[in-house]
Amino acid sequence: MTRFVLGRVAQMAVTLLGASVVVFTVLRLMPGDPALVYAGPFAGSDVVEAVRDRMGLHDPLPVQYLLWLKAFVTGDLGVSSISGLPVSQLVGSALAQTALLTLTTSLLAIGVGVPLGLLAALRKGTWADRLVAGFNTVALGVPNFWLGLILVIVFAINFSILPAGGSAKLTEDPLGALTSLVLPTIALGLAPAAMLARLTRGAVIEVMHEDFMTMAAAKGMSIGFVIRRSLLRHVFLNLLPVLAILVGSLLTGAAIIESVFTLPGAGRLIIESTRQRDYAVLQTLLVIFVAVFLLVTFVADILYSVLDPRVRGHLMREGGVR
């Protein structure tokens, strides 16, 4: 087990290092001069040169990369070339916002999706099953940002019972921050809920054919008991890798949803900093996004192999659940 974990950690580190090279190279390919943006349109060429010098843009690319990597590893993320604020502060608060949205959305998706899938599987072939299937089809076909718009039109404009967005801080105005998350959470969480419902249904049906289920039934255990003790654990096992991928894709979805609801999250920060060629912020955010994705996959791999030791060998060969 230790060998497996260490191997996966090493693999993750190499992948992350590769990703940081890609991020760095791609950002330097972008047209536009950050020094020019920073100095402003009316700065003389000597000022721009000075800025360029201070930003280290004269060094060769590999040197720039190594300097950045060194600073990054030691926790020195630099300052935003636009707002002058420390990158750690900007990125930190934006990530907190996005993490909160991802959390509420995951809770909604699991809280709605798993019970629906369970219901559909236990009542397979009945109208309940068909109703859930219909819900899934519709929920997976409705784009989250459009749903967001419609929710805003209905609940914020027509009935004005919920805010259309907002930037209330959880620490200052907890109620305001949470209510402003209600509509984005629904918009973002509906499709993942449907996906989980489908997967849960499939997993439950598969598990119900396993020998231990027949065994439990033969022993005279009640359905509810069997579901709680055996079935859910096995279903969870089947869902783990998917949950991990889901969290990764929620981060992406958040980028668009945040701009619909004007939430000050990481997705909006990425769009803003790209527009303004804010290298320091953008580099940090991109690397963190990739790192989060890798970390989530990693945790899923570990949990998966703890719960089911048989997969360990397989994962070591294939390098990950995906």
């Binding site: 992948t15 590769g18 890609v22 894709s249 991109l286 994705f293």
Partner: peptide, 12 residues
Amino acid sequence: LTDIGIGFPVVI
């Protein structure tokens, strides 16, 4: 390489 590629969200 695909590990790296899959880690990038599409919006980015």
